[in-house]
Design a protein around this nucleic acid. Structure first.
Length: 599
RNA sequence: GCCUGGGUAGUUCAGUGGUAGAACGCUUCCAUGGUAAGGAAGAAGUCGAGGGUCCAAUUCCCUCCCCAGGCUCCA
């Protein structure tokens, strides 16, 4: 289950009351079935609700049927659910054995809020219950609709790993059985779309325990996608005035101390043992930034050089949390579509605008339309974790906001996600099935020039440049391709398809002709294969469909005789017999224009 | 990292205190097909790794490794 937030607006949703009530019923059921289990809390979330319990024993998915049965029993009782204002005295007494509830009650009291409670059932009723609750309920337990428990998980109290871990049960509820079934079907679809599932048919990457977690090996198909994408990135950057550089993947600790990364990411860096150099610690680079700064510094730069755009497809290694590794979406080694832009303060807004345009170009080419920008500023409660002067930060924020406002792009402000050296502008993209991914991050940085002593010669003396730090519209090749696998459900556009044309000879006697046709496509650098297995045509078509190969060319007696090919698209469209030249020019056109269409 | 569940053939999975099965895939042979699975035979497994209990462990227990789903605030 994906992380979901409780948004204020869903409180108006009729499902909110229903799920909120269902959650209370779940609490009742769990408390009666597992003596000692204490409810802590449980809000509705976007797609359902969850309940957190303080319980020293184990609740597993095997227990779900009996919890659900108990819930149905409570539903049958059709008990009233009522809200009322309580006194702090009363509820402190009620929850005297529940330290988590008491903590919440104390917070309420501190904030000067009125404690409201909801009561389920009558005092002499079977399921009498009182709970601290902000309300919005359906009137009776009989109205909680159709529900299903989904999964059980551990969750830290208040999300901090220093706190006790509670048992969380995820569930969902809808007004009708049909809606519930529809939701469950959607979940199934999401699972099928998971890039790790798609990978089984597409053979993009593979993982080995002996290589290590989060360290994917790229298979030939994956490499085709990756190189097409990276070449596109390089060509585009060349057109947009970037210069390519390359920097070593191992470096002394010193460099990252200078950039301030060691104190923030020290634990997330891979250390390298270097015999005979004990006085210097070496690391595999977790980012490319400091190297690019040094390249800027490698000679005298003048205002005429600005904006200087240094680009690198740089492979970096980060020792990510074991639990957050996920296929190629979150590996430990990945290749960034990275670049740093050095410019004057006056140029900064325009440079930023150009970056927004670059994103627009990339995403519209790929047909990605559902995205927005998140502007991450400093967390006002943790101001001490950021480097640099207040004035510098304000300037950086002003530049970023001005650029975003001018660009007309939709953006939201988040007060906590800034990098330690500057505000962040992240692009969040939704895949075709609505899962949101943080793909690209872009930062403005007035701090590093100071740290690295970067200067350029202006008309009247030396000035500090502004750095647009780490801009990466295509993110990392790993995550981007993982995202695209889900987005396209494996059916990549022609230019990214590992095999673009599959030639399917009907019988063995058509093999020679099939190979001749294949060569004609290969001459045009179209990725073409002949399925020469001794299988039926139907089986070959089926296999090509599963691999989402865009074009299937069937050749049999008729085609050989007329010097044609029968074209079947992966959309199951049958275009009938066509001349080879027509097909080649069509495929070539779709390939070269990076079209999202097949014909 | 922490909680829960899992790890058996390339893949998906079944199964058992007496060292293993299916389907798909793969190889070979037969079949010469007309738009999503033709047939047969065969190869393929240190049952995640190490330790313990036992006459005997893939199965029971412990440790570790790997995989999956969760884990800010949000009554």
């Amino acid at each position: 289950m994906k992380k979901q937030k409780v948004v204020d607006k869903i409180k108006d949703d009729p499902l909110f009351s229903l799920r909120h009530s269902a959650e209370h019923v779940m609490q009742l059921a769990v408390e009666s079935l597992f003596p000692g289990a204490k409810k802590v809390m449980g809000p509705p979330i976007e797609d359902g609700f969850y309940g957190d319990f303080d319980y020293d024993g184990k609740i597993t998915e095997e227990d779900f049927p009996k919890i659900e049965q108990k819930m149905r029993d409570i539903v049958k009782e059709n008990l009233p659910i009522k809200m009322r204002v309580a006194t702090f005295e009363e509820i402190k007494e009620t929850f005297k054995d529940n330290p988590f509830k008491l903590e919440m009650i104390n917070d309420l009291e501190k904030d000067g809020e009125k404690p409201t409670v909801c009561e389920i059932g009558a005092k002499d009723g079977k399921f009498y219950d009182i709970d601290l609750c902000a309300g919005n309920h359906v009137g009776r337990t009989g109205n909680i609709g159709f529900f299903k428990l989904l999964s059980v998980a551990g969750a830290y109290w208040r999300g901090s790993e220093k706190n006790k871990m509670l048992t969380r049960i995820y569930a969902t509820a809808f007004e009708t059985q049909e809606e519930l079934d529809e939701y469950l079907a959607k979940m199934e679809e999401q699972k099928k779309r998971d890039h790790r599932n798609i990978n089984k048919d597409l053979e993009v990457f593979t993982l080995f325990e002996e290589v290590g977690p989060g360290l994917p090996l790229w298979l030939p198909n994956g490499m085709i996608i990756r190189e097409e994408l990276e070449n596109w990135g390089k060509e585009t950057e060349e057109k947009w005035g970037y210069q390519r550089v390359s920097t070593p993947f191992v470096t002394k600790k010193k460099l990252f101390e200078l950039s301030g990364h060691v104190s923030y990411f020290g634990e997330e860096m891979f250390k390298v043992e270097v015999p005979g150099e004990e006085e210097d610690e070496y690391f595999i680079k977790p980012m490319n930034c400091p190297f690019h700064h040094l390249i800027f510094k490698s000679k005298t730069r003048t205002y005429k050089d600005l904006p200087l755009k240094l680009a690198e497809y740089g492979t970096v290694a980060r020792y990510e949390n074991r639990g957050s590794i996920n296929g190629i979406l979150r590996p430990r080694v990945f290749c960034q579509n990275d670049a740093h832009i050095y410019c004057s303060e006056e140029q900064a807004v325009d440079v930023f605008l150009e970056i927004v345009d670059l994103h627009r170009y990339y995403y519209s080419t790929l047909g990605l339309t559902d995205y927005h920008v998140e502007l991450n500023l400093r967390d006002p409660e943790k101001m001490n974790k950021y480097h640099g002067e207040e004035e510098m930060w304000q300037k950086a924020e002003k530049i970023t906001r001005e650029a975003l406002d001018k660009s007309g792009i939709e953006y939201t402000v988040v007060n906590e996600g800034a990098a330690h050296y500057g505000p962040k502008m992240d692009f969040k993209i939704k895949s075709a099935i609505g899962t949101e991914y943080g793909i690209s991050t872009n930062q403005i940085d007035l701090y590093m020039p100071e740290k690295f002593g970067l200067k350029y010669v202006d008309k009247d003396g030396k000035e500090k440049p502004v750095i647009v730090q780490h801009r990466a519209p295509l993110g990392s090749s790993e995550r981007f391709i993982g995202f695209l696998m889900e987005h396209f459900a494996g059916a990549f556009p022609v230019w990214l398809s590992p095999v673009q044309v599959q030639i399917i000879p009907i019988g063995e006697k058509h093999l020679k002709y099939a190979r001749e046709v294949s060569q004609k496509f290969k001459d045009k650098k179209i990725r073409t294969f002949v399925d020469d297995r001794s299988e039926t045509m139907q089986a070959k078509i089926r296999d090509s469909q599963i691999k989402k190969i865009p074009y299937m060319l069937i050749v049999g007696d008729k085609e050989v005789e007329n010097n044609k090919v029968s074209v079947r698209l992966r959309t199951e469209e049958n275009l009938g017999a066509r001349t080879i030249d027509e097909v080649i020019s069509k495929v070539e056109e779709m390939y070269l224009t990076k079209s999202l269409n097949l014909w």
